[in-house]
Amino acid sequence: MKKSIPTPLRRLRREGLAFLAGSILGLPACVPGIAVAAPSTGASAAPSQEFPMKIRLQVDGQPVTATLDDNASARDFAALLPLSLTLTDYARIERIAYLPRKLTPAGATAGMPVKAGDIAYYAPWGNLAIFVESGDANYSGGLVRLGRVETGLPALQRPGPLKVRIERLPD
């Protein structure tokens, strides 16, 4: 479901920024041709594609498709794409790789059941985890579900290390 700001509110927000910037800089509120950019927060911009988002993982040349959930951590992960990683075996049921930076841990759980195909972020270590087998009822605290593998799970079930390229699929 697409969430968008109604046009009048977008215009109000845009014009409000122009008024605020004009006030600070001593400019009239409505100066044609002057565009005022919102200040940068230093955080990566949210991707423009809607969620849930389809992604492709190329695992040693074999395609795997997955869908990312609509949550803050998944959106933060999507902002890193495209991404090349090496997945290694961990605890027999998952393949892990460290990400270039930590993701927002919003939504981290005290423990969550994991199923084969779940894609998660382990906040305490800052790593991506793709589960290739189902785990205990409450596997581990600090996991945030990012999405789920839809097709091609056997490519990830092979022993690692596995070279993987992750990218968004076009709409």
Rank of each mutant, 00 (worst) to 15 (best):
S48D: 12
L128R: 03
I55K: 04
R92V: 14
K3E: 15
V164E: 02
R158Y: 02
G141S: 11
L103I: 00
L99S: 04
I166R: 03
T7N: 07
L156K: 06
S48C: 08
R168E: 12
D70H: 13
V31Q: 13
N71C: 06
P6H: 13
A35W: 04
P170M: 13
P159H: 11
W125P: 01
V59G: 01
A129N: 13
P124Y: 03
T67P: 00
V31M: 13
E133V: 10
G147T: 02
R165W: 13
L12E: 14
D70K: 13
P47R: 06
S23T: 13
K3C: 10
L27Y: 12
E94A: 07
L146V: 00
L83W: 04
N71A: 05
A137E: 09
F131I: 12
M112C: 09
L25A: 15
S73V: 02
S73A: 15
I96D: 03
Y98H: 10
A66G: 06
Y121C: 09
S73Y: 05
P28C: 08
P63K: 01
E94N: 05
T151G: 08
R56A: 14
L99N: 03
V132L: 06
Y139E: 04
V132A: 04
G111V: 07
A18Y: 06
V64M: 03
P113R: 12
A137T: 11
Q157S: 15
